[in-house]
Design a protein around this nucleic acid. Structure first.
Lengths: 217, 217
DNA sequence: CTCGGATCTGACGCTGCGTCAGATACTGTG
DNA sequence: CACAGTATCTGACGCAGCGTCAGATCCGAG
């Protein structure tokens, strides 16, 4: 797509400017990872990018705009995750697919941790742009999950009391939030693999309605 | 409990000061509800409370300290929720208890929406104090849920692959996060009651392992 | 009424934001 | 290679809000 980058004044920008803009974005990501949102300052970003603070405002109307741009790039890595949610998941053995999905989603989270946290932060804080960025990002996965619930209901495995979309949202909510406080859960003595196994089981059970063996681990 | 309130300099404060502190807290909550965290300013709070900005700092080291104090008070309303998670949930009819819990928890959320959102926001943002506040708040519920999972596992209804604590955390995560973006879910055409029904079903299924009828709604 | 501690406050210095008018770099043209 | 014209960058500024401090005010005890 020929998505021409624009400066804040609306003009289409050239090579040099694109490079500058990118340096600013890189610096933003670095600082975000290192110090968190709270200590993120335009002055620091500009300095690290070797530019004057005023330059920053030439490409981003404010800090949020830059972070928003970063979270758009994270989206690229989310798209492939859709593959894992390819129906049908119709036999107990398909729990492998759920496991693979949880694993992949977890990796996606660690790769983009800093940005995703802030995106959700801002979205929950009510920021309209971040809300719609998140919705857009989750929509693909959400739709797949909802389709699975519907399929499960048609096969009379999944309770009719589940609203497919709400159930899908619940699963996303569970995954997202749990990955955001992984550290805390971990501190309580739950290993990463136990956590993944738990998420996998709940996800598979909820989306497909297929019972998981209760006795063997 | 004789929890003496302290000023930031450590001295125990008297009647007049307690009243001032409370006026500041009230004003903080008001503004938080009206304008959100981002526009929360010490100047405004002080003005609304009829005090000088400097007074604010006599009782709270900064804005966060005040919000933290607010979220401690929300805790009082969370404690009674434990009742709903009284085991055993052992027959299909006990889904009523799950329903009641979801309902009560949802009300708890709407009552304290503004504060809870910010508390989670700050906790996810890495703030240590808010993290531990949240942990403390959730611990009671978490423990109950984990106990249910364990019981379900002993009855061989719940898969052994669930880590009780991780599963409990997953359920809390699902509830919390879904209540934070209720509005968004609602906008997509899912009614509040459909959402509650969905959460109830997932919660009951996951904690007890008791199958929910798949055909009738 | 007077004193001493408790409580409050005005005024200040500082940091970081976002804006402008103008400086500088680059490109194509003759 | 000089020059015009555009693209890009910047220093300097005014402003908002934070957090501090020295001193003013309040209030009960004696």
């Amino acid at each position: 797509m020929a998505d021409e980058l624009l400066a804040t004044d609306g003009r289409v920008i050239g090579e040099r400017a694109i490079a500058t803009r990118q340096r600013l974005l890189d610096a933003t990501l670095d600082l975000l990872r290192r110090d968190g949102v709270l200590d993120l300052k335009v002055v620091d970003i500009s300095r690290d990018a070797g530019a004057a603070p005023a330059t920053f405002y030439q490409y981003f109307s404010d800090l949020d705009a830059a972070i928003l741009a970063l979270s758009e790039t994270a989206l690229d890595d989310e798209v492939p995750l859709v593959e894992f949610l390819q129906p049908p998941w119709s036999s107990a053995a398909d729990i492998e697919r759920a496991r693979a999905f949880v694993q992949a989603y977890s990796e996606y989270w660690s790769d983009h941790y800093a940005v995703l946290i802030v995106r959700n932060l801002k979205a929950d804080g009510g920021d309209v742009d971040f809300r719609s960025a998140r919705s857009r990002a989750n929509l693909l996965l959400l739709r797949r999950m909802a389709a699975m619930v519907t399929a499960g209901q048609e096969a009379e495995r999944v309770p009719a009391s589940l609203d497919p979309f709400a159930a899908a949202a619940a699963m996303m909510a569970m995954l997202d939030r749990l990955f955001t406080y992984q550290t805390e859960v971990r501190r309580r003595g739950t290993s990463k693999s136990a956590q993944h196994e738990t998420l996998t089981t709940i996800l598979f059970q909820t989306l497909t309605g297929i019972p998981t063996s209760s006795t063997s681990s």
